[in-house]
């Protein structure tokens, strides 16, 4: 059983996935950030592989990507950093990124290397359903990596069920059609999440985009299995205090009762 499936078997409420950009704020911050996230209550770590043209991301993650690239972060450098992450990092780790750098690296090599360092799954927002089924999906699956599709309030039901059936680990429910780091009207979001919950999907679903604090985390957890926080954490890290203090304060805020 994959680490993600195991996690959701043990915990299917208030699962917290925290995103951070690999190589941010400093090239060698990646492991320190991951250890800190694990220690302070994150259930899943989503590592962003920085890209020059991140279409689905808002300003905060764009800036962190640019800084990480300028720090010298590459896919090779990331795999080198992750080589010794297991077993000290015991929670699931998923990589988020865009297709172009992965195609240049070679998808087969990328998947093999990711699996060998202990990565559990992939989130690739610009890999659509058609191309996944026709070309790329088989390589990802044959390397035993979970693949997590995004769904939105506008995704028609038949397509949503298909995306669910092709996903494993969890489903990424985008709170509304928007780039990351945009504020949301949570009453509208609630109706959509209620619908998702009632669909009895194969996968648990985590809500992302616009989750930034305790209030928004609690709000989506009424229906979802958990949530993904990205921009708000990156913003906290950008204040340049030490990683551990920042992460502890941030996650305590989100997870407090």
């Amino acid at each position: 059983m994959s680490r993600l499936s195991e996690l959701f078997e043990q915990k299917n409420k208030r699962v917290l996935n925290v995103y951070c950009t690999a190589g941010y704020p400093h090239l060698n911050s990646t492991m320190e950030v991951m250890e800190s996230l694990q220690k302070n209550g994150a259930d899943i770590i989503e590592l962003g592989m920085p890209y020059s043209d991140p279409l689905a991301d808002g300003e905060v993650i764009q800036n962190s990507s640019l800084i990480a690239l300028n720090n010298g972060m590459t896919i090779d450098a990331l795999f080198e950093q992750l080589e010794k992450m297991r077993p000290s990092i015991h929670i699931p780790v998923v990589l988020m990124g865009y297709m172009n750098p992965i195609l240049q690296y070679g998808l087969e090599d990328f998947c093999k290397k990711a699996k060998s360092v202990g990565v559990d799954g992939l989130i690739l927002p610009d890999l659509p359903l058609f191309e996944f089924e026709q070309v790329y999906g088989a390589t990802i699956k044959s390397n035993d990596l979970d693949f997590i599709f995004l769904v939105t309030p506008e995704t028609p039901e038949t397509r949503l069920r298909k995306l669910d059936s092709l996903s494993s680990g969890f489903l990424y429910a985008v709170s509304s059609s928007a780039t990351t780091g945009t504020d949301k009207d949570f009453t509208k979001v609630a109706m959509y999440l209620e619908r998702l919950k009632s669909m009895q999907l194969k996968n648990p679903f985590l809500v992302g985009f616009g989750i930034k604090d305790k209030a928004s985390f609690d709000a989506v957890n009424v229906f979802a299995n958990g949530a993904i926080i990205g921009s708000a954490y990156i913003q906290a890290l950008s204040k340049e205090k030490d990683v551990e203090t920042t992460t502890k304060t941030f996650l305590e805020g989100v997870l407090s009762n």
């Binding site: 659509p128 995004l150 939105t152 995704t155």
Partner: peptide, 10 residues
């Protein structure tokens, strides 16, 4: 092709 995020699919 159309390598777009799901948010633009519809």
């Amino acid at each position: 092709g159309a390598y777009i995020p799901e948010m633009l699919y519809s």
